[in-house]
Amino acid sequence: MALAPVGFAVNRRYAVKYTAQLEAAGFTPVTDRTGRLRYEPPGGQLPGHGNPFAR
């Protein structure tokens, strides 16, 4: 139980690192229907939005 705060801090550090990488690559943050944050590829759209056969 004492290591839980350390785990949260490490997880937050990785999330910030990978968020910066995705945004540098041109991905844009988008909130989906369930409220989760997703990253949309450059020039693309999330599956299920318009075309049912989207990647």
Score class of each variant (00 low, 15 high):
residue 1 M to C: 10
residue 2 A to H: 13
residue 3 L to H: 09
residue 5 P to T: 08
residue 5 P to V: 05
residue 6 V to A: 12
residue 7 G to R: 15
residue 8 F to K: 07
residue 9 A to D: 13
residue 9 A to K: 15
residue 10 V to P: 06
residue 10 V to N: 04
residue 10 V to R: 08
residue 12 R to E: 11
residue 12 R to F: 11
residue 13 R to Y: 12
residue 13 R to G: 11
residue 13 R to D: 11
residue 13 R to W: 13
residue 14 Y to P: 03
residue 14 Y to T: 07
residue 14 Y to G: 12
residue 15 A to K: 10
residue 15 A to G: 07
residue 16 V to I: 13
residue 17 K to C: 04
residue 18 Y to D: 03
residue 18 Y to L: 05
residue 18 Y to T: 12
residue 18 Y to G: 02
residue 19 T to Y: 00
residue 20 A to I: 02
residue 20 A to N: 08
residue 20 A to H: 07
residue 21 Q to T: 10
residue 22 L to I: 03
residue 22 L to A: 09
residue 23 E to G: 00
residue 23 E to R: 13
residue 24 A to D: 10
residue 24 A to H: 06
residue 25 A to C: 06
residue 26 G to T: 01
residue 26 G to E: 03
residue 26 G to I: 04
residue 26 G to S: 06
residue 27 F to C: 12
residue 27 F to P: 11
residue 27 F to Y: 15
residue 27 F to D: 07
residue 28 T to C: 05
residue 28 T to W: 01
residue 29 P to I: 00
residue 29 P to H: 01
residue 30 V to P: 04
residue 30 V to E: 13
residue 31 T to V: 15
residue 31 T to M: 13
residue 32 D to S: 05
residue 32 D to Y: 00
residue 33 R to D: 14
residue 33 R to N: 10
residue 34 T to L: 15
residue 35 G to E: 00
residue 36 R to L: 05
residue 36 R to Y: 04
residue 37 L to G: 02
residue 38 R to D: 03
residue 38 R to N: 12
residue 38 R to S: 02
residue 39 Y to C: 04
residue 39 Y to V: 02
residue 39 Y to F: 15
residue 41 P to I: 03
residue 41 P to F: 06
residue 42 P to V: 04
residue 43 G to T: 02
residue 43 G to S: 04
residue 43 G to D: 02
residue 44 G to L: 06
residue 44 G to C: 12
residue 45 Q to I: 02
residue 45 Q to M: 07
residue 45 Q to A: 13
residue 46 L to K: 11
residue 46 L to N: 10
residue 46 L to D: 05
residue 47 P to R: 14
residue 47 P to H: 07
residue 48 G to Q: 08
residue 48 G to I: 01
residue 49 H to D: 10
residue 49 H to G: 04
residue 49 H to L: 12
residue 49 H to T: 14
residue 50 G to L: 02
residue 50 G to F: 03
residue 50 G to M: 01
residue 50 G to S: 05
residue 51 N to V: 00
residue 51 N to K: 05
residue 51 N to F: 02
residue 51 N to P: 02
residue 52 P to Y: 08
residue 52 P to T: 08
residue 53 F to Q: 14
residue 54 A to W: 07
residue 54 A to S: 15
residue 54 A to E: 15
residue 54 A to P: 00
residue 55 R to V: 08
residue 55 R to E: 13
residue 55 R to K: 14
